[in-house]
Simulated assay, not measured.
Amino acid sequence: MSDTSPFTLAASAEMLYLDLPFTERVRRVADQGFQVEIWDWSTKDIDALTATGATFSSMTGYLTGDLTSPDGIDALLTSARASLTVADRLNCPRLNLHGTGLNPQGLPVHPISRTTPAMWLTAADTLRRIAALGEEANRVFTFENLNLAVDHPGTPFARAADTLALVRAVDSPHLRMNLDLYHAQIGEGNLIELLGQALPYIGEIQVADVPGRCEPGTGEIHYPAIATALQDLGYTGVVALESWARHHPDTALAAFRAAFTPVRPEQVRP
């Protein structure tokens, strides 16, 4: 049996080893062979992160703003440009976006109960401008789906179907989906079918189990089946653990690696 995953595995240092300084969290994740993901770069010592030698897979690609209001669009584009400068320092290929700016509790700064047709058109136009920035910098912005029922009520363009529709409309290699299966399970379910529909537009996949947002094997999602489906679909990109650790972070990372190292029948010796 092979113990090598067919995917590039990453993990968020924001949610693991919470008793350690952030730079040490990054080292712990990297030392176990994972690429590292971070959120708000403005609160980090970028030089110290670079000195860890970690490979950074993804970071937040904006600090404020939204996709539809004039002031919000200006703020989003300005902070996206600043984020690209930091991504260059970290050699980070992907920068993550949401439907609107979120506060530290993950709630939208300006919640929206209904998106109008005009807002959809404006959002698509804003994302085209974001994709153009990514093309200039040779980076990829990823647009993440969120769940409305538990973690992010009031966030516009949050469902996986919404993010897929907008990314498909822009149709740029510099704007892809960050398909978060934790959020998708809460919001929509039918995950394997969703993966097949979204595959051409996926830039990254994030995972955690439901409920609790902990590592694979702690909830209702059968992640080994997800891994096998991804392998069958031919996906070889990034799968990132964005979860809390139910017990110890080392155990969470081991469970994540095991879930995304699928074993083919032909690999099993009789």
Rank of each mutant, 00 (worst) to 15 (best):
S83D: 03
S83T: 02
S83L: 05
S83G: 15
S83Q: 04
S83V: 03
L84T: 07
T85S: 05
T85W: 00
T85Q: 13
T85E: 14
V86M: 09
V86D: 07
A87R: 01
A87Y: 00
A87G: 01
D88G: 14
D88K: 00
R89E: 03
R89A: 03
R89M: 02
R89I: 00
L90R: 03
L90H: 04
N91H: 10
N91P: 02
C92Q: 09
C92D: 11
C92K: 04
P93I: 11
P93T: 10
P93H: 13
P93M: 12
P93G: 12
R94F: 12
R94L: 15
L95W: 10
L95H: 10
L95I: 12
N96W: 08
N96M: 15
L97V: 01
L97M: 01
L97E: 00
L97N: 00
L97C: 01
H98F: 15
H98I: 07
H98V: 11
H98Q: 10
H98P: 02
H98S: 13
G99H: 04
G99E: 05
T100Y: 03
T100W: 03
T100S: 15
G101N: 11
G101P: 05
L102D: 03
L102C: 03
N103E: 08
N103S: 13
N103V: 04
N103G: 13
P104L: 09
P104Y: 12
Q105P: 06
Q105W: 11
Q105L: 14
G106M: 12
G106H: 10
G106E: 11
L107D: 06
P108W: 04
P108M: 04
V109S: 07
V109T: 11
V109C: 08
H110Q: 09
H110W: 05
H110E: 10
P111A: 11
P111W: 06
P111R: 07
I112V: 14
I112F: 05
R114L: 12
R114T: 13
T115I: 12
T115Y: 05
T115E: 12
T115R: 07
T115A: 12
T116D: 07
T116G: 06
P117F: 01
A118C: 04
A118Y: 04
A118P: 04
A118V: 08
A118M: 07
A118S: 13
A118F: 05
M119P: 07
M119G: 08
M119Q: 15
W120N: 02
L121Y: 06
L121G: 07
L121Q: 14
L121N: 10
L121P: 03
T122A: 05
